[in-house]
């Protein structure tokens, strides 16, 4: 792949849950080595976009190309090859609850490599050290605090040294110090391991600190994509609301409002 080719290339992506349309014609591109932050109000479709980027959902319309693979057309073998090159840390961590932290981190190595037990143990402990969880490998996920879950999930996501890392809400619900540490970690991963990183976040400070570029999503549409400076300077009212923590003006459509109140349930 030449350096100029995007790692992620999404064109005119539509997504539905049932009949509800969640994403409207989303175009989205990320270049190698970039840290892209996706911002947007709660429910704007950030996690849904992410689910498409990691191939958990197939596009309803439009195309998603990740590391040169078309997610909609890829067969099982191609998807597997792609997934080995991706790391994903979910919004809730999604550690396997029946396994210890160490086993969780070692799981991708066990399943995808033929390394011997010793090597696997050392490699997974190394990654735990990277996320400042050294020595915690024997705890069960239920014994971890929220911040530790996020860091353990990150360790599992990077254990195969992925080319591309997705991180949903790294700092939600964490104290400022831990969340700042996670930001440092993300920067370190990009600089030391040359990963391309896509981060979904609500936290303005953290977004501005780590982002090379920011995409703002609003009600399933991309409002703007650009460098963090240019997005901050945008004239778009919704973006300014988001950046200055202003409550949204409520526009009332009387007919729609009445219909919602009186509609019969199916």
């Amino acid at each position: 792949m030449s350096a100029a080719e995007p790692v992620i290339e999404v064109r005119q992506l539509d997504a539905f849950y049932g009949r509800r349309r969640i994403l409207h014609g989303v175009d989205f591109q990320v270049m190698p080595g970039e840290i892209r932050v996706i911002m947007g109000a709660s429910g704007s479709g950030k996690s849904t976009l992410l689910r498409h980027l990691i191939g958990l959902q197939r596009p309803h319309a439009g195309s998603v190309r990740i590391l040169g693979t078309d997610v909609a057309k890829a067969g099982p073998a191609e998807m597997l090859a792609l997934r080995r090159r991706l790391g994903v840390s979910f919004q809730g961590g999604a550690l396997i609850t029946s396994m210890s932290v160490g086993e969780n981190v070692a799981l991708p190595l066990r399943e995808h490599t033929r390394l011997d037990e010793n090597t696997i143990r050392i490699m997974s402990r190394l990654k735990l050290e990277v996320v400042n969880l050294g020595g915690f490998q024997d705890l069960m996920p239920s014994q971890l605090s929220g911040g530790m879950v996020k860091r353990a999930a990150l360790a599992r996501a990077i254990v195969m040294d992925p080319k591309l890392l997705f991180f949903d809400e790294p700092s939600a619900g964490l104290d400022p110090v831990v969340s700042a540490e996670l930001d440092e970690l993300i920067l370190k991963l990009r600089d030391a391991l040359r990963m391309t990183i896509v981060v979904v976040t609500h936290e303005l400070d953290s977004a501005l600190k780590i982002a090379d570029t920011i995409t703002v999503l609003d009600q399933g549409r991309i409002l703007e994509t650009g460098s963090s400076v240019s997005v901050q300077a945008s004239n778009n009212e919704r973006i300014q609301d988001l950046f200055h923590r202003r409550p949204r003006p409520v526009d009332v459509d009387v007919d729609e409002y009445l219909r919602r109140l009186t509609q019969e349930e199916l």
Binding site: I54, R83, F90, G92, I96, T97, L107, E111
Partner: peptide, 16 residues
């Protein structure tokens, strides 16, 4: 409970 806590999704994206 694994589906609810996204563990099934996590397995999927790990290529398992």
């Amino acid at each position: 409970s694994m589906s609810v806590s996204q563990e099934v999704d996590a397995l999927g994206v790990m290529g398992i």
